[in-house]
Design a protein around this nucleic acid. Structure first.
Length: 880
DNA sequence: TTGCGATCCCTTTTT
DNA sequence: GGGATCGCAA
């Protein structure tokens, strides 16, 4: 420990954040404790006292910080190459611990060492629970722990019983295991064979719910409703709580959402399915309501660690309180829980998804006696890059101030290049990447493609960059949208499997009932549906009684029966026993693919359009699914399957069915981010969100423009810009040695060329630490010509005055999103004008909103009421 | 019932 | 520019 400099221990309580938010948070917490007094721990005073005695209160507790240092050789190697602060974080094993781990401060290293240290202290592996947000993070953590243990000459390989899992996977397991305990409770209808719906499934379900409620999906977009539902679930609000809230606010939209939430929930339960948010919400309910489940969970896990704590939402916060109950000391006192959270408020970028940054800002207040350790030394980036990141993030108001620092001198200045348009921008990025390869800096390892990444705010920005890279023959991978298990053909196959595992799963049934086409068309389905509704039976059950359904032709009836016999052949009529039933999972998957006709269907479509790479991939993907099932089968350990440890009275499911359920669960919880593979020999393209937790030698961030970064919607939300700034900060701090930031003066969006305003974040970078080059005039002529040739409107119409392009004014200027009583200059007609819409008829223009291509008119139609229309699309005609 | 083409509407970020 | 939906023809 050569460096005596202490960077740890931010003393005292965090600066007060907004008083109201703190207030509601506390109200929620105290209401929670009031409701569940049996969970009540000895509160602040007791806890503080216990902490201040600063020695183990339990016989078997590991020694506290410092006392046993150096006593065991294993510890030396675990602690050797750590800073003082890092070491402190590793050896503080007891009580609540908050580790503020700045970007690049060796967070993962600390967590994995801490787990290894706990094990070395003799803590049984099964008492340790580490939670992450992605499978990838969990996998890496496990791997690195195994590595550490291997090096130490201990038993190599995974310590049995150590739980490192994502929140979602943990909840899925707990629900599957403990669902039988909840059977028969009012309002609980989930069985252990439930399906997990991803966002596609959610949407198709919500679509149906909306139309069954007699509403138009055009007026009530499923996405928007689902966002409201998701937010409610993240706050642990059920349909009735939400309805109550909506009633009080008197908001029509909220009231309708509440109604749809209730029906959606009913439909989910009918399908014996849960969505992602339910996993958390229902687990909280389970642990609150079932004493038995709670006892088992709390007796097992004694050391809880949570990674990326700044991204937890309210449900996850409550879940963590339920999982982390302090042990009882020999003298009968309750000890503070051993909960260790790691995070960085400056990297909180999931507020829009319900992440509650106050969970980390107020951790100390929530857990009295918390020890706080700040890791501020950065081991990743060069000084100029850190300076840029630090200068940017200092513009955030709501923030615990802390500066990143590095001990390594030198490094190239980050480049900022202003480009003419997005094609120019892509060329600039391309040239920069090539330049790094061609002329590597001295004293650095020569960079390769895999050390480089391009980040952007929105997925659609990747296209132009992709095109440029492809043309230049540079290998690249896009970490994007469609993970393997989300692809159309794979989801089709999984839908068959899910139907087998959970016959109530209507979303899956509807997906594949006529795919590939087997003459069960919409009218047939509608008739069966009516029959099912009348008889109050599931869709599948209605199909089984198809001869009783009215109005069906014999041809339709036999098509339905053929479908059913297909399913029954795979499952042995549901028993999974007897002749002809597949013996292995891979066997089952293979037969489903072949006999359903899916395989032939996709093989055929790939032969029809052989030029289509996507098409021919689909068949290969289906084959790939079979081998994924085989892999799963080999690794599957029935004894370790939580669903196999029966806690209720039910008989165990047939082994194949149990394995199938476990398989489906595992594939449902795979996310896009998990597929990112920095080891591939290619430039990585990804969103800024996906970049969190990664690092690259060289990073380019494109599209630094108002409306893009910060994004339009974020700018309208409260504290939205601060989150966007953090997002930008995350991007910058991924870069180890080289950083390029670009913006384009013009950008084509929705087929229209638009002038842009450089992002305010560019102004916030430290001028003397970066190199700015303005190349936005290059190629200007060519594009002006193009621009002038296109559209019916005059050039002036399409050019909203560019506000102080370089400027100081960018912060104060009012963005024109608000509705105005006056018509903007580019509006084709004045307020009060009479217009005709092809569909809505005649109306009067009340006001305008937005500008440029987003210029919208609020029009009071004579017949259909008030509508807000985007002028560019509305095809309005002025009438005299 | 199926499949294709015209047409409408729109663009965050993801477990 | 593109994805989803709808209507129409076979």
């Amino acid at each position: 420990m050569p460096d005596a400099r202490l960077e740890s221990r931010l003393g005292g309580l965090p600066g007060r954040s907004s008083a109201t938010e703190t207030g509601t948070k506390w109200a929620a917490i105290s209401a929670f404790w009031r409701e569940y007094p049996h969970l009540m721990r000895k509160r602040a005073l007791d806890a503080l006292e216990a902490m201040s005695s600063a020695r183990p209160l339990r016989e078997d507790a590991p020694a506290r910080a410092g006392e046993s240092l150096g006593s065991a050789r294993a510890h030396d190697s675990l602690l050797a190459d750590l800073t003082d602060a890092q070491r402190e974080a590793v050896i503080t094993t007891e009580g609540p611990l908050l580790i503020l781990a700045a970007a690049g401060s060796g967070k993962t290293r600390v967590i994995t060492r801490r787990i290894a240290y706990l094990l070395a202290q003799g803590v049984p592996a099964w008492q340790i629970l580490a939670l992450t947000f992605t499978n990838k993070a969990a996998g890496e953590m496990r791997q690195r722990v195994e590595q550490l243990l291997g090096e130490d000459g201990g038993d190599a390989g995974a310590p049995r019983g150590l739980t490192i899992s994502t929140f979602h996977a943990l909840c899925a397991r707990l629900l599957r295991r403990f669902a039988p305990l909840m059977e028969g409770r009012p309002g609980w209808s989930l069985r252990a064979d439930y399906s997990i719906y991803d966002s596609d499934d959610q949407q198709s379900l919500m679509k149906r719910v909306i139309s069954e409620a007699g509403l138009q999906t055009s007026n009530w977009p499923p996405r928007t409703i689902l966002a409201g539902v998701s937010a409610a679930k993240n706050r642990l609000q059920g349909p009735s709580d939400f309805a109550e809230m909506a009633k009080q606010s008197g908001d029509f939209f909220a009231r309708t959402t509440a109604r749809l939430y209730e029906s959606y929930e009913k439909a989910l339960r009918q399908a014996n399915a849960v969505d992602f948010d339910d996993l958390m919400l229902l687990t909280v309910r389970l642990l609150r309501d079932s004493e038995e489940a709670r006892r088992q969970v709390q007796e097992r896990w004694r050391y809880l660690m949570i990674d990326e704590y700044q991204d937890t939402n309210h449900a996850q916060f409550v879940l963590s309180t339920l999982l982390s109950v302090g042990a009882v000391a020999p003298d009968g006192r309750t000890l503070p829980p051993n909960i260790c959270v790691v995070g960085d408020p400056d990297q909180s970028i999931y507020g829009w998804r319900g992440a509650d940054i106050s969970n980390i800002l107020e951790f100390e207040a929530q857990y009295p006696g918390t020890k706080v350790i700040a890791l501020g030394q950065n081991f990743r980036s060069t000084a100029p890059i850190l300076a840029a990141a630090g200068a940017l993030i200092r513009h955030n108001k709501r923030r615990k101030h802390k500066d990143l620092f590095t001990k390594r001198p030198g490094g190239a200045k980050p480049h900022v290049i202003l480009c003419a348009d997005e094609h120019h921008e892509a060329d600039v990025v391309l040239g920069w990447l090539k330049g790094l390869i061609a002329a590597p800096s001295e004293g650095e390892p020569p960079p390769t493609w895999k050390d480089m990444a391009v980040f952007y705010r929105n997925n659609f920005l990747s296209r132009v960059v992709e095109d440029a890279l492809r043309r230049a023959g540079i290998p690249y991978i896009v970490a994007r949208g469609t993970a393997f298990y989300q692809r159309e053909e794979v989801k089709d196959a999984l839908a068959y499997l899910r139907l087998i595992a959970n016959p109530a799963d209507e979303v899956s049934l509807r997906r594949i009932i006529n795919k590939p086409a087997r003459k069960i068309g919409n009218s047939t389905i509608a008739r069966i549906e009516n029959f099912a509704a009348a008889e109050r039976i599931t869709l599948l059950e209605a199909m089984r009684q198809v001869e009783r359904a009215p109005g069906l032709t014999t041809a339709a009836g036999s098509a339905v029966r053929r479908f059913l016999s297909l399913i029954d052949a795979w499952t042995g009529g549901g028993s999974f026993l007897g002749q002809g039933v597949p013996e292995s999972l891979a066997d089952l998957v293979g037969r489903v693919l072949a006999e359903s006709g899916l395989e032939a269907h996709y093989k055929r479509t790939s032969e029809i359009s052989p030029g289509d790479e996507e098409g021919s991939d689909k068949y290969a993907n289906l084959r790939e699914l079979v081998s994924s099932a085989r892999d799963f089968e080999e690794e599957y350990d029935a004894a370790a399957d939580p669903a196999q440890e029966r806690v209720g009275a039910d008989a165990a499911p047939p082994p194949l069915l149990a394995m199938l359920r476990a398989y489906l669960e595992s594939v449902s919880l795979v996310a896009d981010a998990d597929t990112i593979d920095p080891a591939a020999g290619a430039v990585t393209l990804m969103t800024l969100h996906a970049a969190k937790g990664l690092e690259f030698g060289a990073v380019a961030i494109v599209g630094l423009e108002e409306g893009l970064l910060p994004g339009q919607r974020a700018m309208e939300a409260q504290d939205g810009v601060e989150e966007e700034r953090r997002l930008c900060f995350v991007g910058i701090t991924r870069a180890m040695r080289h950083l390029l930031i670009t913006s384009a003066a013009r950008r084509t969006s929705r087929g229209l060329i638009e002038r842009t305003i450089p992002s305010r974040f560019l102004d916030e970078l430290p001028k003397e630490q970066i190199e700015v080059v303005d190349r936005s005039e290059e190629f200007g002529e060519a594009h002006d010509e193009l621009e002038a040739s296109g559209w019916g409107r005059s050039a002036a119409d399409r050019r909203p005055a560019r506000r102080a392009s370089n400027g100081s004014a960018s912060s104060g200027g009012s963005t024109a999103a608000r509705s105005t009583g006056k018509a903007p200059a580019e509006a084709p007609f004045p307020v009060g004008a009479k217009v005709r819409h092809p569909q809505f008829g005649v109306g009067t223009v009340a006001s305008f909103q937005g500008r440029g291509v987003n210029l919208r008119a609020v029009i009071e139609f004579r017949d259909v009421g008030t509508k807000t229309l985007v002028l560019q699309y509305a095809r309005l005609q002025q009438v005299e």
